[in-house]
Amino acid sequence: MHSLILSTATRFLTGLMLVFSVFLLLRGHNEPGGGFVGSLVASTAFALYAIALGAQAVRRALRVDPRTLVMVGLALAIIGGLLPLIEGAPLFTGVWTDIPLPRGGYLHVGSPLIFDVGVYLVVVGAVLTVILTMEEEVL
């Protein structure tokens, strides 16, 4: 499909949606949001990009095979689950640490964040694998 309006709007929208998806991912820390929701927004962004500019453009923009994203995400999720080993706690227990910030205050991060980023990548990768396959098959 070639539509000037759609392809111009897509360039703005995709970036905006990707930023929003990262926002949702980080917000999931304590409030509604999280890796899964964020990743669906991100996949929607790429799906829009694929509709406007074609599946090949998405593959170029991604730079990596979506299936690699799935596997990297899976690896991150497992690493997030394995971290409690350091403290001798069972698998998938949340471990937390405070990273001090330059101007006072601190950043409270833990293994669930790594797990969530893993989920994010797995879902983006899986959804994109399906979408791109179908897009390339049908068109």
């Binding site: 959804v127 399906v130 396959t133 179908m134 098959e137 049908v138």
Partner: peptide, 9 residues
């Protein structure tokens, strides 16, 4: 999603 792709194939 997989089933849909499969049906198409």
């Amino acid at each position: 999603a997989f089933a849909l792709v499969l049906a198409y194939c």
